[in-house]
Simulated scan of single mutants.
Amino acid sequence: MLRERISRELDHDPRFSWRGESVTRIENLSDIVFALALGMIVSSAARPETFDQLTANLLTIIPVTAAFAILFMIWNAHYVFFRRYGVADGHIILLNCLLLLLVLFTAYPLRFIFDSLYGYVQGVMGDWSRLEAAGIGYREAGVIMGYFALGYGLIYLVISQMYAHALNKAELLGLSASEIEMTRQSIWIFRVQILIVALTGVCAVWSPMYAFSGWIMGLIWPAALLVDRLIPVPEDDRNAGSEIQPDG
């Protein structure tokens, strides 16, 4: 039908039938924790009491936006999992609780990293006061990056395990051939992210690159495209050859 075709093509995940039709209590709890982590990122600065402090506070929108974007990508991976598979057994509940703990652990280091990067940009322009006030040098910045890499890597390790659990339940969930390959593709993309982030953390803590090793994470996107090429998704029989038909 026309409405079904339009709905599928404009859907957030058009090639995957969503099995999580209703929001579960575990998702409600997760959203609350993600909202708390986002609040920690946005409101971690002290309350401004003068005009200069207010102006400086408004400029923090730059590091806040970057940290917000990374946390939102983690939320989106979590959201897509529950919409795709609708699984909330004991194994998933345990993994989800661990994920939420890691999200809260990562929130402050994530904000601190981008605050430090912003302070470094200001320093290059002649004002090192931000980094000096925070007591951050190259070594300290590298350790902070290591904290973030540890949390970020563990988060995607947990998410990859959640997807792997769903893949093990493929027959029970009634996953099609294309959905199985999409799930396998997602797992490998997460695993590649873990390896790249682990390399970032090692370079940040134990090499002279320190926080500049964060640029290694730029490899995540081309690596994901490579995985997409190496694990092609077959055309789903339910979508293949479908044509727009008039309603009625």
Rank of each mutant, 00 (worst) to 15 (best):
N57I: 00
R238A: 03
A46V: 09
V42M: 01
G214R: 05
I194R: 03
P234L: 09
L225I: 05
D31F: 05
A141T: 02
G201K: 06
A211I: 14
S242G: 06
D115S: 09
V143M: 10
D228H: 11
L102P: 01
V192L: 15
M73N: 06
Q53R: 02
F16P: 01
S116C: 08
F212T: 06
L175I: 04
M162N: 07
E243R: 14
L173N: 11
L157E: 02
L104F: 04
L225E: 09
M125F: 08
I41A: 05
L36P: 00
A149S: 15
P109H: 09
W206P: 02
I6M: 13
F51P: 00
Y156E: 07
L173S: 10
G123T: 12
R8K: 13
D13R: 10
T60S: 11
Y85F: 15
Y147S: 06
I93W: 01
I231A: 04
F34V: 08
Y138H: 09
W188L: 13
P208G: 07
R184A: 13
M145S: 14
L101A: 15
W75M: 08
L95I: 02
M73Q: 08
R5P: 00
R3M: 08
V158T: 13
V143F: 13
V202K: 03
L38S: 09
A223I: 03
M1S: 14
I231P: 03
M217P: 01
A66F: 14
P48Q: 05
L100P: 05
R25D: 12
T24A: 14
H165R: 12
G201Q: 06
F34E: 05
G123W: 08
I26P: 00
R5C: 00
P232W: 07
L94A: 14
R8V: 04
I144Y: 08
I93M: 11
S207M: 07
V80P: 00
R5Y: 11
G214F: 13
T50N: 04
L38Y: 03
V23Q: 05
N168K: 15
Q161L: 15
P208E: 12
M125N: 13
